[in-house]
Design a protein around this nucleic acid. Structure first.
Lengths: 349, 349
DNA sequence: CTGAAAGCGCTTACAG
DNA sequence: CTGAAAGCGCTTACAG
C-alpha cells in the first residue's frame, strides 16, 4: 500500500508538502503541486483515513444507532438521513442494536470513531452521555427525548388519542390495545405513550379502561396469541389499536386466519404508516418517518459545524389515514365459534 | 477524554502495561491487573478505536457497499448480514451509493477504514480491486460476479425464463418486459440477465421478440409512462414481466389507474419476492434475499479469519410464487379507450 | 513556499 | 512481569 512517505520520496519533496497539496493548502507552488499530483495519480495514492482521523481528531463519519435497523419504520427514517449525510461528505456508520449487550456497547464503541451521533429510538445513558460530551461528540435523538439533547419526535400520546377517537366515532366501545414491549434493548417508550393516549381517549369518552384488553408483546411477535386471547373473552373487543403498523399487520393476519372479516367483524388501526400499510390497506396514524430522518440529520450536521441550533426539540405532525381496516362494529358480538378457535390452536402448534 | 496515558499515570504503571491488561495479555501480575482495571472503571476509560486501528492495522469493521441501500430488496439482504456481523464483533460501515461520483469514491474511501468489504450489486473496478488487494482487504460480492472474487448470486437468466414460461403456460403470447436501466451507479446487470431469460423463453416458445415490448427505465420510475406506451400499441401486450418487484408494483399501480383489472385484463410478474410483494399479492420469482446476505457475510468472515473458502461462488435457488396478478389473458385485446388514457395524461401532468 | 519534527493514542517487540 | 521506545500514517505549527 502506498503511503504519503512513498509519494513524498517519489516526488522528491517532504511529506508535509504532499499533505498540503492533498488538503488543498494554498501555500504550495504551482510547480510542486503539479508534480505531487502527478505522483499521486501514478501511484494511485489514497490517504489513510484512520491515520488522518487520529491526527486531526475528526473522523468525517457519523454513527447511526438503531435497534433492529432493518425494521421498515427505521429504514424509512434512514431514507431521510442517507442523502443528507452523503451530500455532506460524512460516512455513515450503522450500529445495529439487537441485544442488551449490544446496546451497552453501542455508544462507547463509537467514541473516537465518529464525529457525531444520531440515535434512533434509544438514548444514551448518563455515563455514556458524559463520555460523549467529554469527547465533544454531538448527539441528536430521533423518536426519543432527553433534557439536554436535541431531538425530533412526534406527539405519541396525541397519536394514540387520534387512533382511538376514530374507533370511538365509528361506534366501537370495546377497543383493545396491542403494544410493543418496553425493554432495555428497544427502549420504545413510544408504545407506552401511545397507550397513554389510548387510555385518555377512552376516559374522555367516559369508558372505563379494561386491563384485559391491553396486551403488550415483543414487537411483531405473539400477535396470534394476543388475538386468540382477546377474542376468547366473554366480551371480546370489536376493534384494536396497535402501537405500530408491524404489530397491526400481524394482528390483521391473525384475525383473518381466525376467519373473521376485517373491517366488518373487527377493526384494526396501526401507527407509523409504513409503506406496507398502504399495500395492506391499513388504517393508521401516519408519522413522517423520512422527514424525521432528514430533520435529525440536519440538526446533527448543524451541531457538527458548530452552528447554533434554533429549535433543538422538533415536533412533527401526525395524521390519521383511514383505509380499509376500520368500520362501524358489525353484528358479531359473542365469542368466536369453536371451529375458528381450533384453527388458531393448529397454527400455534 | 481519558487516554491510556492518563490511566497509566493514575495506576502508577507504564502505558504498555495498561494496554496489556486491556487486551487480555496473560503476562501481567494479578495485582497490577486488578489495579489497572480499577482505574479503568473509575475513569470510564475506553480505548480509542482509531488509534488502535492505526497501530494494529485492523479496524474491526467491515464495509457494506450498496446502491440505494434503503431499497426493500437491499434491506432484506442486510437482514441476513447484520446479525452475523454483530455476532462476530465487527462494526458495520454502510456506504450508500446514489450517484456516479459516490460510486467512484466508495471503494477507495474505505481503504484503511475496513478489514473487509461486502459489495451488493456493484463490483469494484480493476484499479480499486488492485488497491484493495494490495491493502489485503478481502471482498465478497452479492448479486454480481467477478472472476477473482467470491460471490453469491442467483441464476437471473433462468429466473427470467421461469417468469415468462409461467405467462406462456397461461396462454399469453404478447408479453412485455420492464427492466431497470443499467448505469454505472446501479450497475444492475441482473435486469439485463433477466431480459436475456425473457428473450430465451419467448424464443423457445417459437415467438419472435418484439422490441416495442421491451422497456427499460430507472428502477421504480416511469412505470406509468411505460404502461401508457405499451397499452397504446396496436397490439398491446396482455402481460408484463418486470425485472424487480419494485418495478412490478409500480406497473401494477399504473395499470390499475388506467382502469384495467389485474389479472383479468392484464397479468404482472415481478422478481425478488420482497415483503411488499406478499401484501400486494404479486406473482413473482422469489430469490432468497436474506440468505444471500448471510452467505455473503459468512464468506467474508471466513476470508477475514484467513480460512480457505471451499465454494467461493455460491448460487442460490429461485422459485416462482404464483399469487393474484397472473391469469390467462382475458377478452380485452384492443387499445384502451380514450377515457382511460386521459386519466394517465392527468396523472403525468 | 518548504522541510524537519512533534504529536495524535494506541500496540508490541525489545530489554531487563 | 514490566517499562521505555519505536512505529502505525497522517497533519500542522515552527523555523527558515
Amino acid at each position: 500500500v502506498t503511503t504519503i512517505a512513498r509519494v513524498a520520496q517519489e516526488a522528491g519533496v517532504g511529506v508535509g508538502t504532499v499533505s498540503r497539496v492533498i488538503n488543498g493548502s494554498t501555500a504550495v507552488s504551482e510547480a510542486t503541486r503539479r508534480r505531487v499530483l502527478e505522483v499521486v495519480a501514478e501511484l494511485g495514492y489514497e490517504p489513510n483515513a484512520t491515520a488522518r482521523a487520529l491526527s486531526t481528531g475528526r473522523t468525517r463519519s457519523v454513527g447511526v444507532i438503531a435497534p433492529f435497523f432493518t425494521r421498515p419504520s427505521v429504514i424509512e427514517r434512514l431514507r431521510g438521513v442517507a442523502p443528507l449525510l452523503a451530500g455532506s461528505g460524512y460516512q455513515l456508520i450503522l450500529i445495529d442494536v439487537e441485544s442488551a449487550e449490544q446496546r451497552e456497547a453501542a455508544f462507547r464503541s463509537l467514541i473516537g470513531r465518529v464525529d457525531g451521533l444520531l440515535s434512533v429510538t434509544i438514548a444514551p445513558g448518563p455515563a455514556d452521555l458524559e463520555r460523549l460530551a467529554a469527547a465533544g461528540v454531538p448527539v441528536v435523538l430521533i423518536d426519543s427525548t432527553h433534557p439536554r439533547l436535541p431531538s425530533v419526535t412526534v406527539d405519541d400520546v396525541a397519536g394514540g388519542r387520534m387512533a382511538v377517537d376514530h374507533l370511538l366515532a365509528l361506534g366501537h366501545r370495546r377497543i383493545a390495545f396491542a403494544g410493543d414491549i418496553v425493554d432495555e434493548v428497544h427502549g420504545s417508550s413510544a408504545s407506552r405513550r401511545r397507550c397513554t393516549g389510548y387510555r385518555a381517549a377512552l376516559a374522555a369518552a367516559g369508558l372505563a379502561a379494561r386491563e384485559e384488553l391491553v396486551a403488550i408483546r415483543p414487537h411483531g411477535h405473539g400477535a396470534a396469541e394476543i388475538v386468540e386471547q382477546l377474542l376468547g373473552l366473554d366480551e371480546p373487543p370489536t376493534a384494536i389499536f396497535a402501537a405500530s403498523d408491524q404489530q397491526a399487520l400481524a394482528v390483521l393476519d391473525a384475525v383473518t386466519d381466525l376467519g373473521l372479516r376485517v373491517p366488518e367483524d373487527f377493526s384494526v388501526v396501526g401507527f407509523d404508516d409504513v409503506e406496507l400499510a398502504r399495500y395492506a390497506g391499513l388504517t393508521t396514524v401516519a408519522q413522517p418517518l423520512a422527514v424525521s430522518g432528514t430533520r435529525g440529520a440536519k440538526l446533527l450536521l448543524s451541531s457538527l459545524e458548530g452552528s447554533e441550533i434554533p429549535t433543538p426539540r422538533q415536533h412533527l405532525p401526525l395524521e390519521l389515514v383511514v383505509r380499509d381496516t376500520t368500520a362501524p362494529p358489525g353484528s358479531r358480538t359473542g365469542p368466536i365459534e369453536s371451529t375458528a378457535r381450533s384453527a388458531v390452536v393448529e397454527r400455534s402448534g
